[in-house]
Write a protein that binds this DNA or RNA. Sequence first.
DNA 1: GCCATTCTGTCAATGCATTGACAGAGATCG
DNA 2: CGATCTCTGTCAATGCATTGACAGAATGGC
Lengths: 154, 154
Amino acid sequence: MSEPTDQATFERANRLFFRLYQCANLLHKNGTRALDAFGTTTQQWAVIGALARPQVRAEGMTVKDLMAYLMVSRQNLSAVLDRLETRDWLERVRDVADGRSRRVRLTESGIANWTAMQAPIAAFYAASLNHLTGADQSEFATLLERLRKGLDAA
Amino acid sequence: MSEPTDQATFERANRLFFRLYQCANLLHKNGTRALDAFGTTTQQWAVIGALARPQVRAEGMTVKDLMAYLMVSRQNLSAVLDRLETRDWLERVRDVADGRSRRVRLTESGIANWTAMQAPIAAFYAASLNHLTGADQSEFATLLERLRKGLDAA
DNA sequence: GCCATTCTGTCAATGCATTGACAGAGATCG
DNA sequence: CGATCTCTGTCAATGCATTGACAGAATGGC
């Protein structure tokens, strides 16, 4: 094996990012379609999923922490939270410890809907990961995490 | 090694898709930032990159083929093409073989800008892939391709 | 020639995502 | 107490992305 040329290195990276771009679009499109019955997008799915975690469910998360967790802007997150709050899936309550913060918490209705969404989500996962073994998926997640670190620094 | 439980399988998939979601957002944000000097987004970058390929550059691509290649909707692509056309980076010319089609082709200005963009793009690639070896990247691209097939079917 | 199909474009609605700027309320520190 | 910083929310602009619906022009089959 000889050293790859700069050109080959560039094209390899190009292929990688192009496929990432395609997968991201497909995730949004088909993920949202999978949750069509709930009128829920992948972004809302991510927000609810974050709030439904066992260690979070009871007390909720501050907006700041949710921003950091999802890595989206405050203005963007605010709009998504507004939509979910309007539907009564979550509520924003003042933090007793710090009056500036608001804790975002799933309502009972939100938890019920999240529970109901598990079946179509599992089906979506199964169909999407059809060509990937369990080991592939673990490796995949590791590579994504390394890429995330690099993208964060870039 | 025992068989993984359904719960573990679900959580592995969950982690995978969440990281994909994060990487996609970071790609858009930081990729666009890398091309800030050109006022070009990652989406426009993808379009120009498709049209700049050697086998395409001379004759251009039809809108239909570009849609299939990028896997985006006609209405979305149309707006992106409008912006690039306004900046005189590309042109839409009638296909001589089929009057319904229009061939989208880079202008000289578009090609010049694409050439100038190569350096910042290479720098972005290098920084983003800092934690990934060449072998990692090849493996990564393969996994993304398998996921794309699954997502397409889902 | 006529009809159906294809290719493209547009209009409208909705939602995601960024940035910059401004504001108010609460916390913190001197 | 007063200045500063933090957390949140909002307004505005821009761009990406989807869907559904309608329209016009060109092609192809019969």
